[in-house]
Amino acid sequence: MPYKEKKIEKYYYSIGEVADMLGVNTSLIRFWEKNFDIIKPHKNKKGNRYFTKKDIENLKLIYHLVKEQGMTLDGARKKIAAQKEDLAENFKLVESLTKIREMLVEIRDMLD
């Protein structure tokens, strides 16, 4: 099995890095920050936003509800407030399965 370097995990991510992860504009992330109470990025003295892994998970959940399922902002806000734990659990499961699928496809391609 080939050697894989351990991925270095960061504690804080800039708004640009988060926007690249989600494939959206930074303005959309700022907009979601204003509209959803679950997103609380840290800000430095200059006002730059720094997001934790928890913030990124919440943004991914919002992205899933709004962009992939087509919910309105109000509908997504209500759903998150009512079923936050269940939604987060289900979303983590879907993410894990997606990563497993990607890994299996990569293995299949290596074997071909």
Rank of each mutant, 00 (worst) to 15 (best):
M110H: 08
E68H: 07
I39K: 00
I39A: 03
E9T: 04
V94E: 14
L61N: 00
K99C: 12
L73Q: 05
K43P: 04
I38Q: 02
M71H: 00
Y13K: 01
M21C: 08
Y11Q: 11
N90P: 01
L97C: 11
I62V: 12
T26F: 11
R77F: 09
L65T: 02
K43F: 12
K10A: 14
R108Q: 11
R49P: 01
E17Q: 05
D86R: 04
G70W: 13
E33A: 02
I107F: 11
V105I: 15
S96I: 12
I100P: 06
W32Y: 09
E95P: 00
M110A: 15
K92V: 15
K40Y: 05
I38M: 10
V105A: 11
K7E: 12
L97I: 14
I39F: 11
R30V: 09
N90M: 13
N90S: 11
N35W: 09
M1A: 08
E89I: 05
K79V: 15
A76W: 08
L104S: 00
Y12G: 00
V94W: 06
D86G: 10
K7Q: 12
G16H: 13
K60R: 12
L22S: 03
K10Y: 09
D37N: 08
N58W: 09
N58K: 01
I38V: 15
D37F: 14
K60Y: 09
E106A: 12
R77D: 13
E102T: 10
S96D: 13
R108P: 11
A19G: 03
L104H: 00
Y13F: 10
L87H: 01
K99D: 12
A82I: 13
Y11E: 13
Y50V: 11
K46Y: 15
E57I: 05
D109H: 01
I29P: 00
G16W: 07
K45F: 04
L59K: 00
K45A: 14
A76D: 04
K54W: 14
N90D: 04
R77V: 15
E5K: 01
E89V: 09
D86H: 06
M21T: 10
I15L: 05
Y50L: 03
A19L: 02
K6Q: 15
K78H: 15
V66L: 05
Y63S: 02
Y63C: 03
E106C: 03
A82Q: 07
E68A: 01
I107A: 08
D20I: 05
L97G: 12
R108G: 13
L87Y: 06
K79E: 13
A82T: 13
L73V: 14
Y13E: 06
Y3E: 14
D37C: 04
G23P: 09
V94N: 05
D74F: 09
L104T: 06
S27Q: 08
D55C: 02
V94A: 07
E85Y: 09
P2C: 04
L22H: 02
D74V: 12
E57C: 04
S14H: 01
E33K: 00
T26A: 09
L28C: 04
